[in-house]
């Protein structure tokens, strides 16, 4: 069996808007990646536990609820504590540019806002892991 890129796609918090997460999950699958989809309403602890158990290369979070400044830093912190420093963290949602910059300083990778092309997301992950 060959090495595959494994991506955790998660919906943290209470937000149920999963259209984006699912469309991205399908696109990553069609690009040959293995997507572990956790479903909705995940706590940061659940997300990081899944990332550990699944040995993923990427943790991708979709946040449309405005809670991104709470969720991304918390997940990032837990990832570091669990030894997942080398795992790429990315995601998307309703996130203003100013917040994207702040999160980037915490080690969060690129964040995609509404309208982002799927191929950019796929290419970004491939490039970041190569």
């Amino acid at each position: 069996m060959d090495k595959k890129i494994r991506v955790l796609v998660a919906k943290p918090g209470l937000d149920g808007h999963d259209r984006g997460a699912k469309v991205v999950a399908c696109a990553l699958r069609d690009a040959g990646m293995e997507v572990i989809y956790t479903g909705l309403h995940q706590t940061p602890e659940m997300i990081v536990q899944a990332a550990v158990e699944e040995d993923v290369d990427v943790v991708a979070l979709s946040v449309l609820s405005g809670a991104h400044m709470t969720i991304f830093p918390k997940v990032r912190k837990l990832m570091k504590a669990q030894g997942l420093k080398d795992v790429l963290m990315t995601g998307g949602g309703i996130i203003p540019e100013e917040d994207i910059k702040k999160l980037s300083k915490l080690g969060v990778g690129r964040l995609f806002t509404p309208g982002a092309p799927l191929k950019d997301i796929v290419e970004y992950i491939r490039a970041a892991l190569s």
């Binding site: 209470l14 609820s65 809670a67």
Partner: peptide, 22 residues
């Protein structure tokens, strides 16, 4: 906001970061 929609009071653990946001 989402905590209200999901039936959590604002001071519930799961409401953190979501109070009054959307």
């Amino acid at each position: 906001d989402l905590p209200t929609i999901m039936g959590y009071d604002s001071d519930h653990e799961r409401a953190k970061g979501e109070v009054g946001k959307c």
